[in-house]
């Protein structure tokens, strides 16, 4: 008898924000490999289409991935996004709220526009998505919301008060929503990536890069797939009794 694959996402509709690159794309691909119908969301239509093509070429026999363009910082656009999901799919099982921006500045050089931009995407946009996603999930008996926070949100770092604040807020949102949405059988968890090899971290000066690397117990920079694996666990039936938690995917990084 063939054992059931506990990571199987067949029949599930999964929406991934920030899916144009890095963690969002890696997670979208992994979800699709596990049989999910994946909706990739981002701002760059060209990149989204390329990513959807890549996934659909690689996955044979599964449901076709699709994409929707949305700036999640725009609450009106988020409303349209989820109305479209409702019209086309009638349900949602998994939300991976991954879209985010990283902008560093020492406190004295932080501008109001920077604060607004970072919080608009990393925090407010995530809340807008949870608001609509939870309603789609509630009507079909539950689901899993996975919020991408950061090690900077829990530990803080020099020059990252704005980014760290926006990601710390994600942890508070996650724990509050886990309690609020439990009665609707919606699980809400977070992932806190450490130093991950993505476009966000590739612009780091060499000396900073080496310094960060030395702070990682496992001795290597993380890959987007490392984070995607945690996302898959939280999306799957393996985590059906887990809510309100944050999984650090940081290789034992110390900040």
């Amino acid at each position: 008898m063939k054992a059931r694959n506990p990571l199987d996402l067949t029949g599930k509709i999964c929406l991934v924000t920030g899916a144009t690159r890095g963690i969002g794309f890696a997670s979208s691909r992994l979800f699709a490999e596990q049989g999910a119908q994946v909706i990739l969301v981002g701002r760059d239509v060209g990149k989204l289409e390329r990513n959807v093509d890549d996934i659909n070429r690689a996955i044979e026999g599964g449901p076709l991935a699709s994409s929707l363009v949305c700036d999640i910082a725009d609450d009106a656009a988020v409303k349209v996004l989820f109305q479209t999901v409702f019209k086309e799919y009638k349900k949602l099982d998994v939300l991976l709220a991954n879209a985010g921006v990283l902008e560093d500045a020492l406190l004295g050089m932080v501008t109001r526009s920077q604060i607004e931009r970072v919080f608009a995407i990393n925090t407010f946009g995530l809340l807008y998505c949870a608001q609509y996603a939870s309603r789609l999930m509630a009507r079909t008996g539950g689901g899993s919301i996975i919020n991408v926070s950061s090690i900077i949100g829990s530990n803080g770092n020099v020059g990252q008060s704005v980014y760290g604040g926006s990601k710390a807020a994600v942890l508070g949102i996650t724990k509050s929503l886990a309690k609020e949405l439990a009665s609707s059988k919606i699980r809400v968890n977070a992932i806190a990536p450490g130093f991950i090899d993505t476009a966000m971290t590739q612009n780091l000066p060499q000396e900073k890069y080496v310094e960060r690397l030395k702070s990682i117990a496992l001795g290597r920079i993380g890959a987007s797939d490392d984070v995607a694996h945690a996302a898959l666990f939280l999306a799957s039936d393996l985590s059906t009794y887990i809510t309100g938690q944050c999984i650090g995917v940081d290789g034992g990084m110390l900040i």
């Binding site: 409303k79 989820f82 109305q83 409702f86 609509y132 789609l136 009507r139």
Partner: peptide, 9 residues
């Protein structure tokens, strides 16, 4: 669920 609609905030 009953009316198959999605209400906004």
């Amino acid at each position: 669920s009953a009316f198959d609609v999605m209400l906004d905030t």
